[in-house]
Design a protein around this nucleic acid. Structure first.
Lengths: 338, 338
DNA sequence: TTGAAAGCGCTAACAT
DNA sequence: ATGTTAGCGCTTTCAA
């Protein structure tokens, strides 16, 4: 059995209250007794029981981070950047993976709160597209809640840190337009705000450049975040380029599909970017591993992580009068496929 | 304030003990009262306080998973496979990231234990190479400890699940030998067991094929797990192939370096695998994104995850009489670079 | 400055 | 079948 505060008190010849005071550095305690207590702690290798402490203080110096996809390099980059900073504040980070299942996310969120995390950070949650986001609303009632890269109604009580994608995507389209591309295929996913956005920005590109919508179709891939999408994108790209109306650019909604498309194109012998340009989104490590290297829209994981950590600090310090609304700007990173 | 068990008892007109019985499904309770209690729970939206419960039972139905590199796709694949299975058992998985810092790992491990995780799983921990692994020994005294992919002395009390790399690497070398490669450069890292192993197996390959050690050098890269290693490997590969004694194969200690080497080779115009073969280790998504696709040694994340989960079940069920020693076998996955 | 004692919310004997 | 009660290990008044 682990030693308890009672053991320490006995060994030090003081009361448990005094031991508690020493541990928490609260209120004065005679240097001599303090030494004795510290010696006893050392001797018994005593560690306070967090559960008991949490029960009393209902504070545990920990945050829960809820993520939808633990193998998604984009998400994990954000977590990485965030966690490093939080750890520097002595915070304990619990990471949980919902696997993009809203129900699981719900369960994990409540569970984390029940385990008395002091705040909850949700990264691109599975609920992010529900218009009312009622779940997040109720959550925000129980605990400070930071939503990262969500697109919920702004009247929600939660704090929001997000990277807008418009800027970077528009930059990408501008580059495509400047290099004379007039037949851009969008390899897209479905069911999330960001996919709708890409579709919209493609339309905008088509209209403002006076292009034919029929030359600029959207192709939807079933599981755009699965590794299988690499294959699927490759097949689609190859088919397109051999088809009757070959594109001169492929805009993929993420780097994985872009990498797949690139593979498919090169295998059919077309030249990238001379014949066909390729653009991805996310700017993860994948973009630097293909050949030629992928031009991609950076969604600024480092900044997102930093801003989220800073928001957490502001919440902790109580200097926030209203829910935070932080927006980080995306940017197009041009490499070798445009 | 959240409702407590007392509130529920009051509303249902029963004692707290009865409420507790209903919640835990332990011992009989009259269906009628049970209904009343459930109604009260529903009405108050009551959730038991995990801290208080954990304090009593010193069990929390949770496991801590400690990982060294949250952005490492290989590690995260293991976690993914593991967590899915654990979650199916109703276990709550806390994931923590040590960032490959032994001190941080130590702190996190103790912290998790103090938060009463029921068991601790360490994936390729930062202490994995210390010969005595004294930290793991003391940890194992406090909590069931499963070490994944560690290479510590086998008399330790912890349970061990690991993937041996010899099989797959030897297969890879055999393929290289069969295709007549006689000048293999090893792109290696340093400071971990697995790097030593690769060096040793290269020597074995050189000797058993009667090759010249000078033609089969080892080049050590400083941060083999960093994304920067892609660039570094590319530069080295390009330099090698332009040098006085160009290799006919590059064996990289992981896929990231292999991808980099591949880039470097192709940029200098050599043909892969005709002029130079490339082999990676880990078989992560990267291996399927390069062109040509990377031949790589699979370290069986799926099996590792499954075996680890099963070991956990055995520990929980108390059917383990001695520390578990599970070994999963690696395999060479031949793709297009050999 | 220190100690005694009352909880925090829950479970588990022990009674009834 | 249900209630009473004594803790789990800690913090925090309130006294001394």
């Amino acid at each position: 059995m682990n030693p308890t505060i009672v053991d320490v008190a006995r060994v030090a010849g003081v009361s448990t209250a005094t031991v508690s005071r020493v541990i928490n550095g609260i209120s004065r305690v005679e240097p001599v007794t303090k030494k004795r207590v510290e010696a006893a702690i050392e001797k018994l290798r005593y560690r306070p029981n967090i559960l008991a402490r949490g029960l009393m203080k209902s504070r545990t110096d920990s945050v829960g981070i809820l993520v939808t996809h633990i193998v998604n390099p984009y998400h994990m980059s954000i977590v990485h950047a965030l966690e490093r900073r939080l750890a520097a504040h002595g915070v304990f980070c619990y990471l949980c993976n919902s696997g993009d299942d809203p129900e699981q996310e719900d369960r994990y969120a409540r569970e984390l709160i029940r385990r008395a995390v002091d705040s909850l950070i949700v990264i691109e949650g599975a609920h992010s597209d529900s218009p009312d986001a009622v779940m997040y609303s109720t959550l925000a009632g129980d605990v400070p809640l930071i939503l990262v890269n969500e697109h919920v109604a702004l009247d929600i009580r939660a704090h929001i840190v997000r990277c807008e994608q418009e800027t970077g995507i528009r930059e990408a389209f501008a580059i495509l337009a400047a290099s004379g591309r007039r037949r851009v295929v969008l390899l897209n996913g479905t069911g999330h705000y960001s996919f709708d956005l890409k579709r919209r920005l493609l339309s905008e590109f088509v209209e403002s450049n006076g292009l034919d919508p029929a030359d600029n179709p959207v192709i939807t891939i079933s599981c755009p975040n699965d590794t299988e999408s690499v294959h699927e994108a490759a097949g689609i790209a190859a088919a397109l380029v051999r088809g009757p109306n070959p594109p001169d650019a492929i805009f993929a909604a993420n780097d994985m599909m872009a990498a797949g498309a690139l593979q498919g194109l090169l295998e059919t012998g077309v030249s990238v970017p001379d014949d066909v340009a390729v653009v991805g989104v996310d700017d993860v490590i994948i973009a630097r591993i293909t050949r030629p290297k992928l031009s991609s829209v950076s969604l600024r994981t480092e900044e997102i992580g930093r801003e989220t950590a800073e928001t957490w600090v502001r919440i902790r310090d109580g200097v926030l009068t209203a829910p935070a609304r932080v927006v980080v700007h995306s940017a197009f990173i041009e490499r070798e496929t445009t």
